[in-house]
Design a protein around this nucleic acid. Structure first.
Lengths: 344, 344
DNA sequence: TTGAAAGCGCTACCAA
DNA sequence: TTGGTAGCGCTTTCAA
């Protein structure tokens, strides 16, 4: 195949001529608008079918003032959560009558800004920014150009609409779960300065305090990687006088690294150590890993993002909104009731 | 921020008026084309800057016959390899003077066809299909509409340009590596009917035969998932009379599941069992997992894909090309020399 | 219910 | 080197 397209794609003028009507009538009929008599409409539709007519969306967009493109910029498309949010958002945008213009190689702030400039040049009505640009000044700058909603960070200090998971609650959920299982020595491997890490840590701390476990608070610095998790495991399980019976990791990859290293050391999970992660990546849900974790809903994030975008577009001067999407605890096999024998 | 854009974006007519020249001259100056006198150009550029002019790309595309959009359709954007290919390809397309229109929610064949229809309506010059549509008839149909290059499958029987990794060589590379380490009982966990699985299996078989190990050929049916790997491990390590000292898995996830299960059973990797995967996902390269594997190069696949697209566009009637990108062995810690003591 | 005509913002061609 | 004039393919008044 890979055949060249028909010499010249049919235009509205072609089908108008073919059907013996004016271009304007043809336009109305094709779009199903206005009042067109049934037989005329039929004739026009037949002509369109005969000539394999496909409206030129570029021309349509130029002609109709607000034809409606929505820009979507993704910082880390290799990150499955961002990828899924972007994917769902582009479907939702379509459902709102926009076509999504998606930029997936905005992996530096320079490229993100350039991508948004290009989107603006395409006259998008607004931009849904998923993890990019990253630095706050760049975010603020870009948001001064065009209506924008940022998904994936809270952006407390930047005056930009944002949508993100309620990570404080997520942290609390994780700790509550472990406490309910009877654990008391619950450590936290955090995510350093990564997005959300601070709030997850806060949730951990608050929940521990609420349970009267402030003396058991142990925070190990980590990152959102499997290697950081393994490193944290070595640090954590080396402490002679205080051995946790459970760990809340700030990220699933961290949790997986932690579990892997624990197994290597000879500890069993959850026999000797219960582990809860964060994100609920695909891997976490496999039968093999079966990681208890805090689920971030890509669907909720995407729909909240699109809803915020629609609200902003409808009311450009409304107050800035900071939306928090609730996370959900997924109980799987990596966390189990505390058994006294397991304590070191 | 999130401020509304300036009442009406400046147009070429605006800056022409502002600079006291004609629109055509302004157009030439802005694009840096034609012969415009330095001072006039300067005046025009200043006007453009003053009015914060951004050319309307939609209008430009409509006006210039072949303004050049390239469509990119991605089937599984959550798959990091596809995501990365798409990302690199959109950069390369830009370098070729096209702007990429990316569709990331083509996760069913219906949606893929619809997405491609929409891209065609945007008058893209061609479509780079990354893993979508999936079924051969759909692929053939879509390719009859527009110049198309398919990335990620060989498509032997469909007459569509395609680019994929040379998986037969990949399989051979894996086996050669294990044989060089002294292994003889080398099993293969395949990927069933998944893309590339058949050729990886062929490579395994051929290499085993070439090494005179046809009696040691063992193929376990698997899939590209971690759970399939774990399942295969149970099947494989249960055989009483034949225990492999090494396994070549058709996919990294399969390999990871396999290793995980082996560790649970109490085997050490690579002490008791060497494992080689396929793909070189990010996880494989971590210090913690350190999985020996066959690397598929997203960069090579993307650039071969774009090159094939350019060739097809330049010469619509050229013969269909089936490009194979060479894979590369990544030696890491999951594979080690065979030690006699390890044999069961 | 239908059609004529005027744009959307740009490029392209041709004459000055 | 410059400007005038036609479109690109569509939507959108406004009349008929």
């Amino acid at each position: 195949m890979t055949k060249k397209p028909p010499q010249r794609p049919a235009t509205l003028a072609d089908i108008a001529r073919h059907a013996g009507v004016s271009r304007s009538l043809a336009s109305l009929a094709i779009r199903g608008e206005g009042a067109v008599s049934p037989e005329t409409r039929k004739r026009i539709m037949e002509a369109a079918a005969a000539l394999d007519y496909r409206p030129n969306l570029v021309a349509r967009s130029l002609a109709s003032a607000e034809a409606g493109y929505l820009g979507i910029v993704v910082g880390e498309i290799e990150n499955p959560l961002q990828a899924e949010i972007a994917k769902l958002a582009s479907g939702l945008a379509r459902a709102e009558g926009y076509s999504a213009l998606v930029s997936i190689d905005a992996d530096t702030d320079e490229k993100a800004e350039e991508a948004i400039r290009t989107l603006i040049a395409h006259r998008v009505s607004g931009v849904l920014a998923i993890g990019a640009p990253f630095e706050k000044p760049a975010i603020a700058r870009v948001a001064s150009w065009i209506p924008m909603v940022y998904v994936g960070r809270l952006l407390k200090v930047v005056a930009v609409d944002s949508v993100t998971t309620d990570d404080v609650t997520g942290g609390i959920l994780a700790v509550d779960h472990l406490v309910a299982l009877g654990h008391r020595r619950i450590a936290h491997v955090d995510g350093g300065a990564s997005p959300g890490a601070e709030r997850r840590r806060d949730g951990y701390r608050r929940a521990m305090e609420r349970h009267g476990l402030e003396r058991q608070i142990r925070i190990i610095e980590g990152a959102y990687t499997i290697d950081a998790g393994a490193r944290a495991a070595r640090a954590l399980l080396a402490e002679p006088d205080w051995r946790p019976s459970a760990v809340f990791a700030s990220n699933d990859m961290t949790a997986i690294g932690l579990i892997n290293e624990a197994m290597r050391i000879g500890l069993s999970v959850p026999g000797d150590l219960s582990v809860v992660g964060y994100d609920d990546v695909t891997l976490a849900g496999t039968e093999t890993l079966s990681l208890s974790t805090i689920h971030q809903s890509a669907g909720d994030l995407a729909s909240a993002g699109i809803a915020a975008m629609m609200a902003r577009l409808a009311e450009p001067d409304a107050a800035v909104s900071k939306i928090l999407v609730p996370p959900r605890l997924m109980t799987r096999r990596s966390s189990a009731p505390f058994s006294a024998t397991a304590a070191a």
